[in-house]
Design a protein around this nucleic acid. Structure first.
Lengths: 325, 325
DNA sequence: GTGAAAGCGCTAACAA
DNA sequence: TTGTTAGCGCTTTCAC
């Protein structure tokens, strides 16, 4: 692969000159410029970004750590992150922690060694302290580390509230809420808080079921939902904390011979593509995934530029009523 | 951020010595070694991989170009690619071409400028010639460029055959096949070839419908399927070229008051997670996504190591019969 | 307008 | 066992 040196040689100028025409800096005569361009073309020259990064102390790479791109929410988020990153001139390094703390730790170290300009943390398997001394522009998604680290999320409490209120308004008398592991201090736990507030205030029967939310254990979802419906045949409303979970709820309802929405009403969360693939289409709480990706990149970009950014960034959610309610 | 120089200074040795302990090369006394380690810890030193890459002329980065990570097939593939890449010590740079030729071209250039060690091409919007002179370890997925560029795919003809044969065996008399744009010279067109061969041989009525397969236009899928079923009420079998397409087919069948599988039988393709989210669960042709990711990385790795790899790599598919047939 | 030289952080001869 | 030096490909003073 040709270097700036080869180009200079072929064009009969110095490397400085070649560098100048590449970067459009300083004055260069038209003849020199075209000689250089021609040499570049003939050699099929591509400037070595690694050398540039070393000098500039900036890689223009962003690290994206998520549990798993194969999860629909994260795959859609990754798409938007990459899209906006590209618009701002950043590339993105994909890291799937697979929910494994030691993998997550290794990825963080790797990203630092590779001098990425910023990190988007969508996976949170480590203790707070481990994130605190990483001194890189960073933005966390859906988890508040401390008051020093910018956090981006959508309004989880509001989402839980909208979902619960809808089910109550539709007349549900016994509502099951299926959520992730509440021990992890994620902001998504606020959905559960809101749910409990709403049903408590309305005096509606309810129960809360925790799952591990591990995308690899989807086979367990069917079982979980099956036993839930069997032991609580009077459930007439389900609020699931993801659309995938809601899909399994829908499936088990139908299998149990219940009609949706007549006998059981279901609300999902996220509004990923799958919400519209189901029949009946899923009523759900829409997270603004495009905007989350946009803001994640923007918050990082501004930190990289040395700006101060706010530590609490919450976007609004929206109820999308379809056919399961 | 501390450099090797700072470490050397603090440990009272030369940079070479520090480099040596980092890389475990040559002989170093235990005292020196521990002095260096201590200095590293105190300074929280992380070796600069950019500098290393420059010197070693190897970035340990792989480029992954796909139409869109938000598409379930590619999101699951990206997950596996990243997984196996990580195991082999590679990082992966995510590029969503969004099916835009100029974006795809830009990504290819960007990856070359960044001296990635290899490229996985899962998006194919350019003309053959543009891929031919890119002189990088590469593997294409599902498209044969020429006899010089390693190609990885699963057995598309066999997949189409399995699907068509199943529908025929189940007694379908008029089968619709919904596929992507056949003008793109993708290997997935072989599914259509196989379909036509099977139904032709069996003398079963059929029709072929092309779509654009652009994941952003999912709203068009509903319309397409709706009019298809309306104008051909006697369709009793559908072979869709992706599970998502099959999901829309299922939905429109149900909306049209048809029972699945009693009135219409449906076969999808890929066996992504969504196939099990639907009710009834989708019968589909399983692509070995994990193995595709594994082999993609492996083919690249071997090229990087200077080995000769075979240009034609096809993995086998499998019929997964669930509830829609 | 253009070039020579230094240096980004690291590794690899070659000496000592 | 350790250090000195050159150089990876590029940009940036500072001269000319």
């Amino acid at each position: 692969m040709a270097t700036i040196h080869d180009v200079a040689l072929k064009a009969g100028v110095s490397v400085t000159t070649v560098s100048r025409v590449m970067n459009n800096r300083g004055y260069i005569s038209e003849t020199t410029r075209s000689k250089v361009y021609q040499a570049m073309n003939e050699l099929n020259y591509q400037p070595n970004e690694i050398a540039r990064s070393l000098l500039r102390k900036q890689s223009n790479i962003l690290g994206l750590i998520i549990p798993n791109v194969s999860h629909p929410f994260f795959s859609q988020l990754a798409d938007r992150v990459e899209y906006y990153a590209d618009m701002e001139g950043y590339k993105v390094l994909l890291c799937n922690s697979q929910m494994d703390p030691s993998k997550e730790r290794d990825y963080i170290e790797m990203l630092k060694r590779n001098r990425v300009d910023g990190i988007i943390m969508g996976s949170h398997t480590l203790e707070i302290e481990e994130y605190q001394n990483l001194r890189s522009p960073i933005v966390t998604i859906d988890r508040k580390i401390d008051e020093e680290i910018p956090c981006l999320s959508s309004d989880n409490y509001r989402g839980g509230q909208l979902a619960a209120e809808l089910l109550v308004a539709k007349g549900c008398r016994k509502i099951a809420h299926i959520c992730g592991n509440l021990d992890l201090k994620m902001l998504s736990n606020q959905r559960t808080d809101a749910f409990l507030d709403v049903v408590g205030r309305a005096g509606v029967g309810h129960l809360v079921v925790q799952t591990d939310m591990n995308v690899f254990n989807e086979s367990l979802y069917s079982e979980l939902l099956h036993t839930l419906l069997e032991s609580n045949p009077d459930i007439d409303g389900i609020f699931a904390t993801s659309d995938i979970l809601a899909a399994y709820a829908l499936k088990e309802c139908i299998r149990a011979g219940k009609r949706v929405p007549e006998d059981v009403r279901i609300v999902g969360y996220d509004d990923v593509g799958a919400a519209r693939w189901l029949t009946p289409e899923l009523t759900t709480i829409r997270q603004p995934i495009d905007e989350l990706g946009h803001q994640a990149v923007r918050l990082l970009h501004r930190q990289i530029e040395g700006e101060q950014v706010s530590f609490n960034n919450v976007l609004s959610v929206e109820l999308v009523e379809r056919e399961t309610t």
